[in-house]
Design a protein around this nucleic acid. Structure first.
Length: 303
DNA sequence: GAGTCGTGGAA
DNA sequence: TTTCCAAGACT
C-alpha cells in the first residue's frame, strides 16, 4: 500500500504531485510538432506510432515528411503499404509502418476517415495497444486516461513507490496507482499525463536522474529513501549483432532503396550465412514486409 | 509471460 | 569499444 491509498480522506493528489509537476511542465515542455494544435488527432497518432521505442530526435524529420505527404488517414490508406515501409526509413521496427498503414485503412473504412476518439475503437486498430490508445485519447482529444509509458512508470516507481526502476512488465498495481493519481478533472488529467511523461523524459531519466531540476524532489520516495539501487533481476540487454533482426534490417534496407524489384543476388550480398539469410527473408515475407515476385525477385508490398 | 522485432546516439 | 536504451505491440 502506498501513502496515497492508505489515507481514506485523501483525494487522488494526496501526495501533492499535481501542482508542481503541472507548473514545471508549463515552463519546460518541449515544443514538439505533434503538440501543436495544427497536428490534429492524425498527427498525434502518427507521432505515437513513430515514438514506440524510437527517440524523439530521430522521429522529428520523418514525422514532418510523413504528415506533408499524407496529411489525412485517407491519403495514407490510398497508398501501397510498401510506400509506408519505404517512407519509414531507418526508424526501426518497420512493422510499425505496416500497422500504421493498416490503421489508416481501417480508419478510412470504419470511421469515415477521422481518427476515432473512443478508447475501445482506438484499441481495435492495428498497432495500437493499451498505451497508444490512452495516449491518443488523452493528447488528441483531452480525455481522462491513465497513460502508462516507460517514462511515467519510472517516475511513479521513484516518486511514489520508492524504487529505482519499475518492473519489467507493467503490473496491475502500476495501473491501479496510475488511475489513483489521475486528476478528477478531464482537462487537468490530460495535462497531467503529458507532464508526468515529460518529467520522465527530461529529468527523471533511466540514465540518471537530475533531482536538482525536479519539481517533486522534496517528496520523492526514492530520493528520501537514499536512492537504493535496483535489486531485482537485471533487465536483459538485447544483443543485436548476428541476430535475425540485423539480417532483416539489411535485407529491408536494400528493398527500401530500390525503385524496381530486387533480384536474389542483391539480397544474397547482405549476409554470408545462406541459412540465416533465407530464414530472415522468409520472416519478412511472412510479416508482409516483403512481397515475393515471379523469377526470384522481391519488392516492398504493393498491396 | 517470455521472446521477438531495428536503429543509432550517448555514456 | 562496448553497453545501454528510446512515448510498445504482438504472439
Amino acid at each position: 500500500m502506498t501513502a496515497i491509498s492508505s489515507s481514506p480522506e485523501a483525494g487522488p493528489d494526496a501526495a501533492g504531485l499535481h501542482a508542481p509537476v503541472l507548473a514545471w511542465f508549463e515552463q519546460n515542455a518541449r515544443d514538439l510538432p505533434w503538440r501543436r494544435p495544427e497536428a490534429g488527432a492524425w498527427g498525434v497518432m502518427v507521432s505515437e506510432f513513430m515514438l514506440q521505442q524510437t527517440p524523439v530526435s530521430r522521429v522529428l524529420p520523418v514525422y514532418e515528411q510523413w504528415l506533408a505527404r499524407w496529411p489525412r488517414p485517407a491519403d495514407l490508406a490510398a497508398e501501397a503499404p510498401g510506400e509506408a515501409v519505404r517512407a519509414w526509413g531507418r526508424l526501426g521496427y518497420p512493422r510499425r509502418a505496416l500497422r500504421l498503414h493498416g490503421a489508416a485503412v481501417a480508419i478510412t473504412e470504419r470511421h469515415g476517415g477521422d481518427v476515432p476518439s473512443d478508447h475501445a475503437h482506438l484499441l481495435a486498430l492495428p498497432g495500437i495497444g493499451e498505451y497508444t490508445a490512452a495516449a491518443v485519447a488523452s493528447f488528441a482529444y483531452g480525455q481522462r486516461h491513465a497513460v502508462l509509458d516507460t517514462n511515467v512508470r519510472r517516475v511513479f516507481a521513484r516518486a511514489v513507490t520508492g524504487v529505482q526502476y519499475p518492473p519489467n512488465a507493467t503490473t496491475a498495481a502500476e495501473r491501479k496507482l496510475a488511475r489513483a493519481l489521475l486528476p478528477d478533472d478531464e482537462e487537468r488529467a490530460a495535462r497531467w499525463a503529458a507532464a508526468s511523461m515529460e518529467l520522465g523524459a527530461l529529468v527523471c531519466t533511466a540514465r540518471g536522474e537530475d533531482c536538482a531540476r525536479c519539481p517533486i524532489a522534496e517528496s520523492c520516495a526514492w530520493r528520501l529513501a537514499g536512492k537504493p539501487a535496483h535489486d531485482g533481476p537485471a533487465r536483459r540487454g538485447q544483443t543485436y549483432a548476428g541476430t535475425d533482426r540485423q539480417v532483416r534490417g539489411r535485407l529491408l534496407a536494400v528493398l527500401r532503396d530500390a525503385v524496381t524489384p530486387v533480384g536474389q543476388a542483391a539480397l544474397d550480398a547482405v549476409w554470408h550465412d545462406p541459412v540465416q539469410r533465407a530464414r530472415a527473408l522468409d520472416g519478412l515475407v511472412a510479416d508482409g514486409l516483403v512481397e515475393p515476385l515471379d523469377g526470384g525477385r522481391y519488392q516492398l508490398p504493393a498491396g
